[in-house]
Amino acid sequence: MLEFINFYLVPGLVLGCIYTLGAIGVSLLFGILRFAHFAHGDMMTLGAYLALLVIGLTGWPAIAAIPAAMLGTAVVALVIDRVSYRPFRSSPTIIIVIASFGIALMVRSAIQFTWGLEIESYRTGIHRPMVFFDSLRISGNHIQIVLTTIVLVGAVHYLLSRTKIGKAMRAMSDDPDLARITGIATERVITWTWIIGAGLAAAAGVFVGMDTQVNTFMGWNLLLPVFAAAILGGIGRPYGAIAGGMVIGIAEELSTYPWIGTAPLLSPGYKTGVAFGIMVILLIWRPSGLFRGRVF
């Protein structure tokens, strides 16, 4: 039982946090700009590397580097939106999807050019996990990740439900044409959507680095589970993305638990396929997601 919690449930929760933060951004961007942002995974990578830079310069712990990584990634996202996505605001959305596909590779190659292709890690040495009740072992990093996620999700909730710009984001997600007629400053809403989406992606990227290590392909590998989480939650519904992220994260980890006999239920090599499996089942059974997102 304790082994189950220590090695499967807690890592699943941590992975769920990472997916959640990515999926909220994908979901918000989809709701407001109406396109699947294929460069979102590489925004996560960028955040992770910006944190690496800050840690290298200051020697701070990774968690302290998160605000700087979020800010830097948000600025990059805004520049990309201005240069690459904004010219296509009135084009068929699929053109922006193609553009974002290209942006994903450009961001990745820029990171590879700057930092090289080596695997990096935030700290060296072995960290002793904290031990509760003699045998419940949880690493400090994991506690930090979960707590920071709760704070960030709380902040997003406050923004969406209490602030004018947050409500305008929901309004635009409901009906962009009506938002324009109403006089909502749609470009300002889009700007804030990028700041929040990219910021959360960066935080998720740093979490990956805290949990394991940082490499230039991490974003690509995260993209699929993040999309799966966003679809599961009902795309365009940031609150659903939280549930979607948690379900996918935990399901991925639990899929390798020896539920039957002693062998893992699923070979760990296929762990990343779990998200996709869930997504396919969902696309067949209920494409609007568990919480009734947009129907296509």
């Binding site: 004018k164 409500k167 309004a171 109403t182 006089g183």
Partner: peptide
Amino acid sequence: ENLEMGAFI
């Protein structure tokens, strides 16, 4: 909130 959005500007 609908009414508030009407007053966005």
